Simulated scan of single mutants.
Amino acid sequence: MAPKDVRMPKWDADVTVTGKRAGASVSWHVPEEAPVALVYNGLNHAVMLASPADLGDFALGFSVTEGIVKRPDDIRTIEVFEKDQGIDLMITLADAPFERFKLKHSRRAMTGRTGCGLCGIDSMEELFQTVRPVAEMPAALDEAVVRKAVCAFDGLQPLKKLNRSVHGAAWVTLAGDITLVREDVGRHNALDKLLGALMRDGTDMTAGFVLVSSRASYEMAQKCVAVGAPALVCLSAPTAFAIRLAQEARLTLANWSTDGLVSF
């Protein structure tokens, strides 16, 4: 399975606009929010607002972390089609996962804001189902390793350099080296893009950790648990709900600030 991008030059992740300041024209870079439809075997499941970049990775990451499929091999093809109104991600599922999807799809369809959380659940009870632990014991994070990654993070976010208003998600090795970064106007989208790219590349999820520029909410922790990532480091505070999920799943959830590393 490999994403096939069929692109026309309609949507760009960064847009230059003109404004006025004290009567003079000023030029700004702003992020684009593109309506992105996730369509499975012809059935429209969700419309998200996302940065129009790395959408094949987004489709794969979203599909796995939102429970549409159990593994990347459940997806046969991903095609990306741009049009004036937005972008269609045409995703073809294998027969068995498509049958499961049809059962759930008959109950709901959804429209998401910019990387909405809790996409595709049918009831609050789904939030409290028993989760499979990602490890026997929570991973230990070395503060020096995390500091090394955090110091390099800003310099590896080209879209953020332009408009200063997008989120980033990075994969960090156990030595503190960032090997992959994805960006998006939505924090959930950035994480889905990163996790999708990691799965596409066959990355060993036990050999590193995820670093995000945002807070760690429940759904950010849930996405990491869904792919078996052992640790999530955020640059803003986690929520209490996220901490409870992380503890149940033995996911190391940590915050980095000027005070250093705090793990929960």
Rank of each mutant, 00 (worst) to 15 (best):
D14M: 15
P97I: 03
Y218H: 12
A140C: 04
N189C: 07
P158Y: 03
C116P: 13
L159V: 12
E33S: 08
I91V: 15
D259R: 12
A246T: 04
Q157L: 10
A190C: 08
E82A: 15
D184L: 01
I68T: 07
Q247I: 00
K148V: 09
L118V: 13
M110H: 08
E183P: 08
V212C: 10
M124W: 13
Q157D: 00
R7N: 13
H45T: 02
H45W: 13
R71E: 15
S123V: 04
L191T: 05
D142G: 05
A254P: 01
G56P: 07
P35C: 00
T92S: 08
V80F: 08
E82Y: 08
G260H: 07
M205T: 09
L251H: 07
M220P: 00
V212F: 05
V39G: 00
H29R: 12
V64H: 10
P238V: 04
V181N: 01
V64P: 09
S63C: 07
M220N: 06
I243Q: 11
M205V: 13
D14A: 15
L180T: 12
R107C: 02
L235P: 01
F81V: 04
F58V: 01
A237I: 06
G117E: 07
E82W: 06
A109N: 12
N189M: 02
E126A: 12
T16P: 03
V36A: 02
I243D: 08
R21K: 14
R100H: 05
